[in-house]
Design a protein around this nucleic acid. Structure first.
Lengths: 216, 216, 216, 216
DNA sequence: CATGAATGAGACTTCATTCAT
DNA sequence: CATGAATGAAGTCTCATTCAT
């Protein structure tokens, strides 16, 4: 510590990659991957174009780093949360859903799914990475919550695997709608009402004692 | 008749535009708009690069034509169907959902939403068109079905506007999952189970006499 | 006459080449040779693009035909006029100058010199043709008028060869100015005043008894 | 020092634009603007195609820069010269004419007028620029010289405005002739004789005491 | 470490020319 | 004769990547 001659510089150096991926994430969110020029990424990160290449070997690797940076923390946290919760299963489900909604809509990382969708065809390896590390783990986490509720008698027996997309789909739609249509003048989607409605819907349907809704 | 003596340009001028948009749709679906080269579109359509420009003034207009061709018929049909149905509201809702699922997953036009999402930032005008002519109309149609059910006493009172994304979201997720992850080796998503689960879930929750499932 | 089944068609056929060169001349005048598309030439001539090639083997030959059509008559006439005139030499000179001015400014063929200048580098053969058939013959005609005046004692002895550009230069400048700058809002050049001044200038200077003006 | 170890991009950024405009001027002079390929401009400037675009946003702007570079200095100098001269008006006029002739014929910038003429239809903005900054200012300068001579009693009263094209026209013709016809084998135009004849002609005609030329 | 000038492959687009009808 | 759909070479311009400083 005493011998370090320039501590500010050192910290700067280590912070660089994340400054760059943050800048890249902004641009990718606005224009998509292909239409984002590295010139602009560099400018937004406050560095020169050449410096980019000191940290990332090419545009594709930068893309992967952007995704990793934005996503890994979130999914780790979600798994930890679900694993350590000790309350009622519906409270747990609601917490997971609301937290996921908050991530998707409230943070810049919300555009990541959109980027993945858009570029999966061109970067299969990235699509696989995202599937394995994010999508599948996220789905598994929600499925685990459902199974926990069933085992504890809080939820009726339900096909957990098939139910997961039903739970996550509306959140995904909200995220995509917001980033796609709201910039072009569409009326905003009311996320709070959507969440309330979605959770109410789930509560009614999953309740262990819910009668089969059909006709008499 | 036995052997066509002049294969060169026997095809009528009128057929060409759709041959081209069909070829373009395939390519855009595989690689996205930006990464699709007009050379390849032309090759897949069986024409030369220059011929493209006899029918579409530039790449962007071709994109718009692809979207219009693939989408307009579908949405018209859905509106007609919903307007003329005379049976029970849940049967109508199920029909709409299953038909939408069939479109999204079973036909090539299923990638259109993905394309729109990916390029909305670069083509705001197209995003607006899709929002106005497809997304909003589709949402309105589903909302109308819900209101019909409520009015007829078949569904409990529900916030129709907020419920629509809950109904459509899972279908969108299924579509995106299939086109994004299945090509990279992910296990296939079981659409039939998803639909059954989704519809069962809706039936239970929407039933007019369903008790509020919450805790005591 | 009786046996000719379609006399209008026949006349049409023979008129075609000139209809085409006329249309081409208009376009070349507006945009220059390189920027004029054969599509537009055909459209302005009221024919299809393919038909152009029935009359001219390629764009360059069309260009040559345009020049020939527009120019040959004029130069023939000028030579005849100068050769057959029997009045005073200054009247002859004035007549030649005014007639040349009329051609250059008053008719569409006035842009020909400009076209030649612009494209000489790309079509040396055409430049040579124009030089041989138009420029040199025109210059020779004016020089002959000057020599006639000198021989008849009407003009002082003057280097006829060197004097010709002095006579023609102002007319050329007027022509180029009008076609170049007047379309972009420049104040119009007063051609009548220019001609009067130019001819007055020539009259004073060429007069056989004019004293040498300068100081010793 | 003996052998330069790094020939790659030693040249300073500041020198580049002029190296490029110089190369472009050469090519434009040879082939005209439309027929000059940027590849060739780059090659002649000793750089790559892409480097062009670091300095000029497109071909048209390069063209404008070529014109500005070649022309602005000249016209400034001419105005200064005419404004500060203190000798006889005819000497001043002769100096202006000879200097203009030297520019037009002796330097590469002599092709600029030809380029402007050729492309005015396609680049009206450039035509206006040249008109405002070069043609009109040049004409005004010559007119001022004439008015100076008239005011000082050295020239007869003459319509200065109408006289200017009479003075400049022959120089323009000489310039265009040389660049247009001499490369295609025409006999060279004798510029020295032309200038002597032109100036002698002007001296005789403008002299204050010159009698009105013709005999009764 | 950092820079930014330079590169060149490759994209979109134009248009003179051809040729089956 | 006339058409106009089709072609493909060639042009302008972009941008990820390199490398001398």
């Amino acid at each position: 510590m005493a011998t370090d001659p320039s501590p500010r510089w050192r910290r700067r150096k280590e912070a660089r990659p994340q400054e760059i991926t943050a800048a890249a994430l902004e641009l990718f969110a606005e224009r998509g991957f292909a239409a984002s020029r590295l010139d602009d990424v560099a400018a937004r990160a406050g560095i020169s174009k050449g410096t980019l290449y000191l940290y990332f070997p090419n545009k594709e690797e930068l893309f992967k780093a952007v995704v990793r940076d934005a996503v890994v923390a979130t999914i780790d946290e979600a798994e930890r949360l679900a694993g350590s919760f000790s309350g009622g299963s519906f409270e747990l489900l609601e917490m997971v859903v609301r937290r996921l909604a908050g991530r998707i809509v409230g943070t810049r990382a919300g555009v990541i799914p959109k980027l993945i969708l858009a570029e999966a065809g061109n970067f299969p390896e990235l699509a696989r990475f995202y599937h394995d590390e994010v999508a599948r783990r996220g789905f598994a986490t929600v499925a685990a919550v459902l199974r926990r509720g069933i085992e504890r008698g809080e939820f009726r027996p339900v096909d957990a695997r098939a139910m997961v997309p039903v739970i996550i789909g509306p959140l995904l739609l909200a995220s995509l709608w917001k980033s796609t249509f709201e910039p072009v003048a569409a009326e905003p989607l009311d996320l709070a009402a959507l969440l309330d409605t979605h959770l109410d819907h789930l509560r009614r349907s999953l309740a262990a004692d819910a009668p089969k809704g059909g006709p008499p």
